[in-house]
Structures are given as C-alpha cells and as structure tokens.
C-alpha cells in the first residue's frame, strides 16, 4: 500500500441543531475520525453564505464540508433546502473557477448520527487527500499543516485493519 503524506486542511460548517450535536455525540461516544476537519458552528446550514466557502478555499483550506439537518428535519423548517440550492450552484461556480467541485461536500447528519458524522468526515478527508492540495496560497497557510505533517504519519485514522486482512496479507 502506498502512503500519501499529504494532510489536507478542511473547514467544516455545522448546524447548531443537528450536525454540531452529531460531532458532540461522536465525541461523547469516543468515536475516532480524521483530525483534518475544523468546525464552525452556525445556527443553520441556511446561514451558509457561499462566500464563506470561497474564503476558506482561498485562505488555505483544501476542502470544505457543509453539514446540515436531513431534508424535512430542519430546525427552521426548510432552510436546509436553501443550503442545498446554494451548494449545487456553488459547485458550478467552483468548476468555472477551475477548482474541483468535489472539494466541497454536503452531508446531512442528524443529532443522533455521530457515527455517520465521523465516517463521513474520515471519508471526505480521504477524498481530498486523493485530490491533493489546492494549488494556491499553500505556503501562507501557516504552521498547522506542517505540524500535522511532522507528526507521526502512522496515526492516520485509517480504520484498524482487521485481523482477517492481516491474515490474508501475510
């Protein structure tokens, strides 16, 4: 297996009522997931101004994860649909700007879905890892990325290989 040493930096926007609580639940349940995502709490995914995403990407993030309540479960009735609309539009804009639209991902996670939040986070980090760094302004990004790089690379968050796999690999 080849090891990719690139550690992406990802900004996550969360909804105060569902996904932020999902992250809390993942914590309370001590689920482990990739450390690359840093969260921002908003009252609702509908609060997401697309310029926030562009700001994050321009200031050194390699990907942006937008999370909100499942369709039909919005605390504010239907504002997550507005987030969905903006998200779809934003992806087209990103494409026009020459940025891979896959760098932005929308995930629905209810307050009960800590496990889903953790799994989606880890999966998204892997997707961004495959895409590689966003090719501008990298070096201005600051020290954090280097610190992760200098850390023990074996820590990476891959789920533990099952004993079965080890057996087969042996």
């Amino acid at each position: 297996m080849t090891h990719n040493t690139f550690e992406p930096t990802i900004i996550g926007f969360t909804c105060n009522w569902c996904s932020y609580r999902a992250a809390d639940l993942a914590g309370t349940a001590r689920m482990k997931y990739a450390p690359n995502v840093r969260l921002i709490r908003m009252m609702c995914s509908g609060r997401l101004d697309p310029t926030f995403v562009l700001r994050a990407l321009s200031e050194g993030a390699d990907g942006v994860m937008i999370t909100g309540c499942h369709p039909g479960e919005c605390h504010y009735i239907e504002q997550n649909y507005k987030a969905l609309r903006r998200y779809l539009l934003l992806k087209r804009v990103l494409k026009g700007m020459g940025i891979e639209p896959e760098r932005v991902k929308l995930v629905w996670a209810s307050a009960a879905e800590g496990a889903k939040f953790a799994a989606e986070t880890t999966a998204f980090v892997e997707e961004i890892r495959k895409l590689g760094p966003l090719s501008w302004g990298k070096d201005e990004g600051g020290g954090m990325k280097d610190e992760i790089k200098n850390g023990d690379s074996s820590l990476t968050i891959h789920a533990e290989r099952s004993s079965f796999e080890k057996e087969v690999a042996a």
Binding site: I11, R38, I40, E59, A61, G142
Partner: peptide, 10 residues
C-alpha cells in the same frame, strides 16, 4: 473564525 482556524496571518 475561518481565517483563525486556518492560522491565517499568524
């Protein structure tokens, strides 16, 4: 907060 999280202009 975005800038801060990204350690912008530290």
């Amino acid at each position: 907060q975005i800038d801060g999280l990204l350690m912008k202009n530290l």
